[in-house]
Structure formats: C-alpha cells, structure tokens
C-alpha cells in the first residue's frame, strides 16, 4: 500500500495494476449486492443476448477504482469523495484488466485530488473511464 503525503503528490503522478476477472468474482459480487441479473449470472442467457459469455457487472469493474485510490493513489491516507464513471465496453470472464489513474488536479486548500482513471482490457479496449475525487487525511 502506498502512503503518499500531500507533499509527495503532483499532477501527472500515476499508478497502474492488473486484475484477472474470474467467474468467482461475479458470483461474489452478486452475493454481495443482491444483483442476480441473468445477463451476469447465466451463460446461456448472456449468449442468447449476443454476448460471448456472462457479462461482468459494470459496477464490479468500477469497484477497482476504490482499490486504485485506497491502495495506490494516494493510498493509506485516502478518503474517496466521489466517482463519476462511464461504462464504455463490457468485460468478460478471463479478461485481464489494467486499472490506471493519473492525478489531474490538486485542490490545495482542502487537500483533495482529482484522478482521471480508466479500465482497459488485454486488447486495449476501454472498459470504463472515470473521474475520481479523493481527500487526503492528516499530513
């Protein structure tokens, strides 16, 4: 886990990590949220709808923005203030997703950072884009 202080942060500072999407992740997400929509849970249903397999919940891929802020940018002292995300393409089980973000603005008076972030699959296709706002607690 990173532990950036305010003085360590600058516009352009970034972080990236990778995630392999598994069927278990979808099952866990459905259990956690109560969203058991068959597009995400039933392979035959999803294929009949024109997808290669179960569609990964958009909010599951978006949830990795929490990890980006809480573990990487800025890490330990983070408090996520907001997520403004758009889903661009569906992700599939077996996808290896790259989650990345870069600081685009520093609100120095209130120690809030703005991060432009994205999730991209192994083929370079954008799964989602987001603007994240996070505060930095303490010094």
């Amino acid at each position: 886990m990173n532990d950036y202080s305010w003085q360590d942060l600058s516009v352009g500072l970034g972080a990236t990590f990778e995630v392999l999407i598994t069927a278990q992740m979808l099952d866990d997400f459905a259990q956690l949220t109560g969203d058991h929509n068959p597009l995400h849970m039933d392979q035959a249903f999803a294929q009949a709808a024109g997808f290669p397999g179960r569609v990964v919940f958009g909010m599951l891929t978006t949830s990795f923005y929490s990890r980006l802020i809480g573990m990487y940018l800025p890490g330990k002292r983070a408090l996520l203030h907001g997520v403004n995300a758009e889903f661009k393409n569906p992700a599939q089980i077996g996808d290896r997703l790259s989650v990345s973000g870069e600081i685009s603005y520093l609100n120095e008076a209130y120690r809030q950072i703005e991060v432009k972030a994205r999730v991209v699959n192994q083929n370079g296709k954008i799964i989602s884009k987001a603007t994240l706002l996070a505060g930095l607690r303490g010094q």
Binding site: N107, E108, A109, Y110, Q112, E114, G135
Partner: peptide, 24 residues
C-alpha cells in the same frame, strides 16, 4: 462540506486560480 470542496475545485479550474484555505 464535501460539495463545498468540490465547488472550490471547480471554481479554481474555471478561473485558473488557486485559493488558500485562509481566504476561503
């Protein structure tokens, strides 16, 4: 308070200026 932080950030970007906490 959270909306206020976001307002200050948006105003800073619009006018391309920075506020000090004491000013606010």
């Amino acid at each position: 308070s959270l909306a206020h932080i976001n307002l200050v950030g948006a105003i800073e970007k619009h006018y391309k200026l920075k506020f000090a906490l004491g000013e606010l």
